[in-house]
Lab assay of single mutants.
Amino acid sequence: CHSECLGNCSQPDDPTKCVACRNFYLDGRCVETCPPPYYHFQDWRCVNFSFCQDLHHKCKNSRRQGCHQYVIHNNKCIPECPSGYTMNSSNLLCTPCLGPCPKVCHLLEGEKTIDSVTSAQELRGCTVINGSLIINIRGGNNLAAELEANLGLIEEISGYLKIRRSYALVSLSFFRKLRLIRGETLEIGNYSFYALDNQNLRQLWDWSKHNLTITQGKLFFHYNPKLCLSEIHKMEEVSGTKGRQERNDIALKTNGDQASCENELLKFSYIRTSFDKILLRWEPYWPPDFRDLLGFMLFYKEAPYQNVTEFDGQDACGSNSWTVVDIDPPLRSNDPKSQNHPGWLMRGLKPWTQYAIFVKTLVTFSDERRTYGAKSDIIYVQTDATNPSVPLDPISVSNSSSQIILKWKPPSDPNGNITHYLVFWERQAEDSELFELDYCLKGLKLPSRTWSPPFESEDSQKHNQSEYEDSAGECCSCPKTDSQILKELEESSFRKTFEDYLHNVVFVPRKT
């Protein structure tokens, strides 16, 4: 048989008469490798580009789960590009990614509803959504962080984005990388972005840091009482949809009607710091009717980097990364020049730590249904340095008659930039024990000054392991946590139920 035959053949030295091919099969003959313009397919066939392209389009058009959109890589027609490569849609070739590779997620039936953290986790790592997304989240724990972890990498949506009755959302900033909504599939009414009845939605994105392009379709905003109209108009300008909307697409009466839409800028007039305090004062603000001013709200939190936005980490279910302080308005003076500047002394802060701070007014709604208010920009203030805590785990070892090696770990709280350490030492008198000992005694162990690591005695271990207080009263049991108490109650309830079950099964009433 021919060298490319495997198993047997019907005619000697003829690659077209093989029972099976050793390498690849091409047009009725066995070959060692697939010549151009053919590609290896499933490690035994040679196919042309049209064959591989037909497989790709067949799966793409069917949208069946589990099928493969075949691509070409290293002269092979394979189910998908290997790690580190992405497909070129024009020629199906796998090309190296520039940075992290995109991950295209194809949605069944063309859309997916995100109504819980669990459903959001199914899209973790996706960068391109081939379909439409509907966000409908009523509640949950730590929602802002969970949504950002699972949806934060999405850069492109081919269909539309719909935010509907998501009472738990305060902001859409968890879509931190969303840059493009194509609108290839539109919501009824030709809408590519749809926001309806979101009672706590206050911000779409921080438009000073976020760009969003909507290729096709219109915007729809109705019944978002805490979303200011200025935020919607800003989205029109940034996304390129200005002029597409009709009169009733953006409701003037049901958007922002319960919001404090600040239209003035508060400026800080005085800032002073110490290692654990920050004193702030800002310019006074009074609405047209000074009785509408209820006070100020001061927001602050630790910020290692200057990239904080107002609604980071917030949701309507209680999660809030900001510390909020309510401040009463100052006494009002008739003389504008003698107006008191409101302020606040922030206490209990960490030394040498940068804080993000902003302040906003708290006002009631005027009778004319106009909203007044003022808010400052987010500023960054760093507390002063102070003395560091003591170095940890000092170790001293003498390696000769004239040297001592000293080692330690950095302090747990540096409280500033540590530039150097101060080492103090003092000579001590020799131990009298060394002169009084009889060095001729056998088995004498000389006193040693070398360091030995501390260890816990058996008594201390027994005390720590004991669940009861000892007789001397030195140790006591740790208080039980809520989960331990709940577990004990469940076990007790189970024992009672099981005992009742045994009584009912074992003891049967005697027939009379």
Rank of each mutant, 00 (worst) to 15 (best):
L123N: 01
I188G: 09
T254A: 08
I181H: 01
I154Y: 01
V390S: 06
G256E: 05
T323F: 09
E122Y: 07
L186W: 05
I250S: 03
L279T: 02
G343V: 04
L186Y: 07
N224K: 01
V324Y: 14
N255R: 04
A259K: 09
W352L: 11
P391D: 02
I379P: 00
G125Q: 09
L392I: 13
K162F: 03
S208W: 07
T273W: 04
K253M: 08
C317H: 04
Y223R: 12
L178E: 00
V238T: 08
L229F: 15
A120D: 01
L252T: 11
R202L: 12
D289E: 03
E146G: 12
I250P: 04
K226V: 14
D289Q: 05
K242D: 09
Y223S: 12
P287H: 12
R176N: 06
S208T: 09
I134L: 09
T323I: 01
S132Y: 01
I154N: 01
I135L: 06
A195Q: 02
T273E: 07
L229G: 02
K253I: 11
A144Q: 14
I154G: 00
I154P: 00
N255M: 03
V381F: 02
M297D: 11
G139S: 13
L186G: 11
N340V: 11
N200P: 02
Y194I: 11
F174V: 08
N255G: 06
E184S: 12
F221N: 01
T241L: 09
K234S: 07
I405W: 10
R179E: 11
K277C: 14
L229A: 15
E368D: 14
A316F: 06
L123P: 01
K301T: 08
G140Y: 06
D315Q: 11
L153Y: 08
G295D: 12
G256I: 02
H106G: 03
T254G: 11
A144N: 12
P351G: 14
V170Y: 14
K360C: 14
Q245V: 05
A259T: 12
K267F: 04
C261N: 01
L151R: 00
G295T: 02
E368Y: 09
E236Q: 15
E368M: 07
G256F: 08
S396M: 09
I378T: 06
W352N: 03
F175Y: 02
F296L: 06
L151N: 00
R124V: 14
I404Y: 02
V381Y: 03
I188P: 06
Y191P: 06
L133C: 03
E187N: 04
R281F: 04
Q354I: 05
Q216K: 00
F268I: 06
D367Q: 15
G295H: 03
W322F: 09
L186Q: 04
E148I: 12
S400D: 06
C126V: 01
D206E: 06
W207F: 14
I395P: 01
L107A: 09
Q216F: 15
S338V: 06
Q245P: 12
H233Q: 09
G318P: 08
I214C: 15
L180W: 15
F174Q: 02
C126F: 01
L280Y: 00
I181M: 02
K103I: 09
G139Q: 15
L349R: 03
K350N: 07
E236G: 04
L201W: 02
E246N: 15
E237W: 15
R244S: 03
S402F: 08
F290S: 06
D367H: 02
Y305W: 14
S389Y: 09
F193S: 00
N320S: 05
N150R: 06
T254I: 14
L345D: 13
K242M: 14
R182S: 15
E231R: 07
K103E: 09
L201A: 02
N141Y: 13
T353C: 03
Q403L: 13
K267L: 08
G140S: 12
N150I: 12
H106L: 08
A195K: 00
V104H: 11
H222P: 00
G189V: 05
V390G: 08
Y194L: 11
Y285P: 02
L123V: 12
F275Y: 04
A374E: 02
H106E: 15
A149I: 15
I378K: 02
I271R: 01
N150W: 12
L186T: 14
P391Y: 01
L169N: 01
T361L: 12
Q354S: 05
T241E: 11
R176A: 03
W282L: 06
E122Q: 09
T241W: 09
Q121V: 04
I278S: 01
S274D: 03
I278T: 03
Y372S: 05
V238A: 06
C126G: 01
D249R: 04
V324T: 12
T323L: 13
R281C: 05
E146Y: 15
I405M: 02
Q306S: 12
W408S: 01
F296V: 07
Y160L: 09
N340D: 13
N211D: 08
I404V: 08
D292I: 10
P388N: 01
S338N: 07
K226I: 08
K407P: 00
V117G: 15
R332Y: 04
F358P: 00
I188L: 11
M235Y: 15
C261Y: 01
N198C: 01
P330L: 13
V397P: 07
K242T: 06
S166C: 13
F299E: 06
I134P: 00
K301C: 03
R369P: 07
E156G: 07
V359Y: 02
L123R: 00
P304D: 05
P394S: 14
S400N: 13
E264G: 06
S389N: 13
M297S: 07
L266V: 06
G110F: 04
I395R: 14
F221R: 00
G140E: 13
R244A: 12
W352A: 06
L123E: 01
W408V: 03
T361R: 05
R370A: 05
E146M: 09
Y380P: 00
N211P: 06
H233M: 02
T113P: 13
S333M: 12
W286H: 01
S260Q: 11
N248I: 09
L143H: 03
Y191D: 02
D292R: 08
A144L: 10
I154R: 00
N248K: 09
S116Q: 03
P351R: 08
I114M: 12
L161E: 00
R179I: 11
S366P: 13
G313L: 04
L169W: 01
L266K: 00
S338F: 14
Q121A: 05
A385S: 11
W322K: 01
W408K: 01
S333A: 05
Q339E: 07
E283A: 15
S321Q: 09
Y167R: 06
D206A: 14
L196R: 14
W286E: 05
Q403K: 12
L172P: 02
N211Y: 12
F193H: 00
E246L: 04
N224L: 03
I379M: 02
R332K: 06
Y167S: 01
A120I: 12
N399A: 14
Y191R: 05
Q258L: 13
D377Q: 06
A303Y: 04
P288D: 14
V325W: 14
W344P: 01
P342K: 05
G256R: 05
N248S: 13
A385V: 08
T254K: 14
L172E: 00
F175E: 01
N190R: 06
S260R: 14
N255Q: 04
N320M: 12
P342Y: 06
